[in-house]
């Protein structure tokens, strides 16, 4: 397996006794494989942790990008999430799914960052700030999807957060309320607002 690490290409070969990503693993095989990598990472193996990162970073970055609507902030949040994952990995118990645990940790960490940022700036992060690159350059996406992504990114922060967590990530209103530290009624109101705004933006 050859991959880019930093500015150079590193040939990363793992010994035969170590878990290795197979070509098309079933979900059960994949879960077992992930568990083995997690166990190694919990024991302090940074290479195993890198494997977990590379296997799951797309999921974390997608979440961060949609919640923050800012590619630069999403990258920083993604890095921050993974450093936190490393710190908290020992608390992960194998009786739950790593990706579920990771998702929960990522949501909480990204929300923490957004709250801190809001406090620092004394206002919601404006999506119209010059220099904000909302989505970077993502080729090969359908126009319809891009239109929805842009519309989501243009939502006010509160409505966007709730919409992304509920509609894209599939959290229940109660779970969104717990994660954001708000009342369920507030979540529903924000969800209603988001839907209304999106329909307005997407309807010709």
């Amino acid at each position: 397996m050859t991959r880019e690490v930093g500015s150079h290409t590193e040939d990363v070969r793992f010994a035969g006794s170590e878990p290795s990503p197979s070509t098309e693993p079933t979900s059960l095989q994949r879960a077992r494989e992930t568990r083995r990598w997690v166990e190694r990472a919990q024991a302090g193996d940074v290479r195993a942790f890198e494997y977990l990162y590379r296997d799951h970073v797309g999921r974390v970055y997608a979440l961060a990008l949609r919640m923050t609507a800012d590619a630069r902030e999403a990258e920083e949040a993604t890095q921050d999430v993974w450093v936190r994952v490393w710190e908290r990995l020992e608390t992960f118990r194998a009786d739950s799914s790593f990706s579920t645990w990771l998702h929960r940790l990522a949501v909480n960490r990204i929300l923490d960052r957004m709250r801190s940022r809001k406090r620092r700036e004394g206002r919601s992060a404006s999506l119209d700030d010059p220099g904000v690159n909302r989505w970077g350059t993502e080729p090969s996406k359908t126009e319809e999807r891009m239109e929805l992504e842009r519309a989501i990114a243009a939502l006010p922060e509160g409505a966007r957060t709730v919409f992304v967590l509920h509609e894209v990530e599939g959290l229940k209103c109660r779970e969104v309320a717990e994660a954001t530290g708000t009342a369920v009624g507030t979540v529903k109101a924000q969800l209603h607002r988001a839907r209304k705004l999106l329909r307005g933006m997407l309807t010709p």
């Binding site: 690490v5 990162y53 590379r54 970073v57 797309g58 970055y61 999403a74 993604t78 350059t137 993502e138």
Partner: peptide, 8 residues
Amino acid sequence: IQPTRDLW
């Protein structure tokens, strides 16, 4: 969505 640069 993959980040546009390697964050590792």
